[in-house]
Simulated scan of single mutants.
Amino acid sequence: MSLVDCDLLPVACTLTPGAGVAQLAAWREFNDDYLLDIDRAAGQITVHYPKIDVAIARLTELVRTERTCCTFATWAIDTTHPDLRLSVTGTDDALAAPTYLEQTSTLETNESVQ
């Protein structure tokens, strides 16, 4: 487990450090495979993915974990649009915490090069 990964876990997260690092890695892998776009507004983050069965299944599993460990926000999956959407709502302070929703291996690699 790297210190960088531990630093990405929200303070209010109830996962153990090892489980937290695994969850962060799962988000990075999922985002590498499917992330299309992210919209931020006051009190809400909406993350867009392609609406395909495998993405729905993987996102459902990720969100299941988030609902148990990061209860400072509300996690909802919306399949009523042409794309798959994850909506995370909460206070602006709470929504500053899950920065891992925007993390990808590519982003991390690019940042480490600079």
Rank of each mutant, 00 (worst) to 15 (best):
M1K: 05
M1H: 09
S2K: 07
S2M: 06
S2T: 14
L3S: 04
V4K: 06
D7C: 02
D7S: 11
D7Q: 08
L8H: 08
L8N: 10
L9T: 04
C13H: 15
T14I: 14
L15D: 05
T16R: 01
T16I: 00
G18A: 15
G18S: 14
A19H: 15
A19I: 11
A19D: 15
G20W: 12
Q23W: 06
Q23M: 01
Q23I: 00
L24T: 03
A25N: 12
A26I: 00
W27V: 07
R28W: 00
E29N: 07
F30L: 03
N31L: 10
D33L: 07
Y34S: 09
Y34C: 10
L36Y: 02
D37S: 07
D37L: 07
D37C: 00
I38T: 14
A41T: 02
A42E: 14
G43R: 12
G43V: 14
G43D: 13
Q44I: 03
Q44F: 02
I45A: 02
I45P: 03
T46W: 00
V47F: 03
V47R: 14
H48R: 12
H48Q: 10
Y49R: 12
Y49T: 13
Y49S: 13
K51I: 00
K51Q: 04
I52Q: 08
A55T: 12
A55G: 12
A55W: 09
A57L: 05
A57N: 04
R58F: 00
R58T: 09
R58P: 02
T60K: 10
T60V: 06
E61F: 03
L62F: 00
L62G: 11
L62Y: 01
V63M: 06
R64N: 07
R64Y: 03
T65W: 02
E66N: 12
R67A: 09
T68R: 13
T68Q: 13
C69W: 10
C70K: 05
C70F: 14
T71Q: 13
F72Y: 15
F72V: 14
F72N: 10
A73V: 11
T74R: 12
T74P: 05
A76S: 02
A76D: 02
A76H: 01
D78T: 04
D78L: 06
T79S: 06
T79K: 03
T80D: 09
H81D: 05
H81C: 04
H81A: 08
L84H: 13
L86W: 00
S87Q: 09
S87K: 13
S87H: 14
S87M: 05
T89Y: 01
G90H: 08
G90Y: 13
G90E: 14
T91L: 12
T91Q: 07
D92I: 02
D92P: 06
D92F: 02
D93K: 11
P98N: 03
P98L: 01
T99C: 01
Y100C: 05
Y100P: 05
E102H: 10
E102Y: 07
Q103S: 04
T106Y: 04
E108S: 06
T109L: 07
N110L: 02
E111T: 09
S112G: 01
Q114A: 12
Q114C: 12
